[in-house]
């Protein structure tokens, strides 16, 4: 992804230009395609729950459904049909087949949209009865946003097929487009907002008391007695570590959004985010792996590809020439 961030110290000529520069820089679809290749298989193989888990709400009264997305589906699909194991298993199967197609990049856009919509419905239904968890929402939005952007322009079956057609130039890793960045930027912004929501709500609800150490001790203790993570027991017995952990949590969550705008701080923020989530997992067993995998949208794969390519072009012929020369000429004296 080609980054051209605007700086607060040198204001842009106008909001329109700044908007276009932020969302629509001309670049290749390589970062988008690599994000697709990372996010979709990771979800299918490691992050998605077994189909039986999506059937749990079938024991609940469908009259309690409160999520707008499911109510919208029920406006089209009769509740007697929707609230059945056969229907939900059909949605799950369709979403998974679409996920496999999205991974290989066949009908990429449609596949991603179908997969994203399928899991939005399944998980939205799961959280329609009062229970709600926060790990999957951004990931599902990411599928839909990747589906709305040209993520199949390279490293896909679509690209392989289209490069044999007349409009071959628009496809492949070298083809440039100004709509290849906005989806990744939007996922970055949504991550920034989600973290800011978590950090600011701690400051607004708990205030500075949130960092008193006892708050983190209580939270970790609650999850320790449920899941029995040994690291949790160790943490709650170290009061000052809880104070430091709470302060770090609030700072990282509140200011994570800076990584969207300032490229130089990204590696530190992402590293802090990984430490935070791994710490939460080891002490509280709360699996925020989806958020960590989403960090892939911050990686500038286009720059990495360019660098690898340049290194390949510069070194290979030189290395070959060097190897062709006699041993003594190469600098070996014995």
């Amino acid at each position: 992804m080609s980054d051209t961030p605007t700086t607060p110290t040198s204001p842009p000529a106008g909001w329109r230009d700044a908007w276009i520069r932020f969302w629509f820089p001309a670049t290749t679809a390589v970062p988008l395609a690599i994000c697709r290749l990372v996010l979709v298989p990771t979800w299918l193989l490691f992050l998605s729950v077994p189909p039986d888990d999506y059937m749990v709400p079938l024991t609940y009264d469908p009259g309690r459904i409160d999520q707008a997305i499911i109510l919208a589906v029920l406006a089209v699909v009769p509740v007697d049909l929707f609230h059945t194991e056969e229907f939900l298993r059909g949605v799950w199967l369709t979403a998974n087949v679409a996920g496999v197609l999205a991974t290989i990049g066949l009908f990429t856009r449609t596949s991603l949209l179908v997969m994203g919509t399928g899991f939005l419905i399944l998980i939205g239904h799961l959280w329609s009865y009062g229970e709600l968890h926060h790990t999957e929402s951004l990931y599902c939005i990411a599928f839909v946003l990747l589906g709305l952007s040209p993520s199949g322009r390279c490293y896909s079956m679509d690209s392989w097929l289209r490069r044999r057609s007349r409009r071959a130039r628009a496809w492949g890793p070298e083809a440039r487009s100004d709509t290849a960045t906005w989806a990744l930027r939007l996922i970055q912004c949504l991550l920034g907002i989600a973290y800011f929501s978590a950090g600011s709500s701690k400051l607004l609800d708990g205030g500075l008391y949130w960092m008193n150490g006892e708050t983190l001790q209580t939270i970790v203790l609650t999850d320790y007695v449920r899941f029995g993570m040994p690291a949790g027991l160790w943490l709650i017995q170290n009061f000052w570590l809880c104070v430091a952990g709470a302060a770090m949590t609030v700072v990282v969550e509140t200011f994570f959004f800076v990584a969207v705008f300032v490229r130089g701080i990204r590696r530190y923020m992402l590293a802090a985010g990984v430490v935070l989530h791994m710490g939460i997992y080891l002490t509280m067993a709360a699996p925020f792996f989806t958020w960590m995998v989403l960090y892939v949208v911050f990686v500038d794969f286009e720059a990495l590809r360019r660098r690898a390519k340049q290194a390949g072009w510069a070194s290979t012929p030189a290395a070959e020439a060097l190897l062709r020369r006699p041993r003594r000429a190469r600098g070996f004296t014995s």
């Binding site: 707008a68 939205g124 951004l138 929501s197 978590a198 709500s201 607004l204 708990g206 708050t215 939270i219």
Partner: peptide, 19 residues
Amino acid sequence: TWWPFIDYPLYSPAHTAPV
């Protein structure tokens, strides 16, 4: 109720002793 657009007030209340 607008899943997947939700807020994230994760563990936001503060607690004091006793833990």
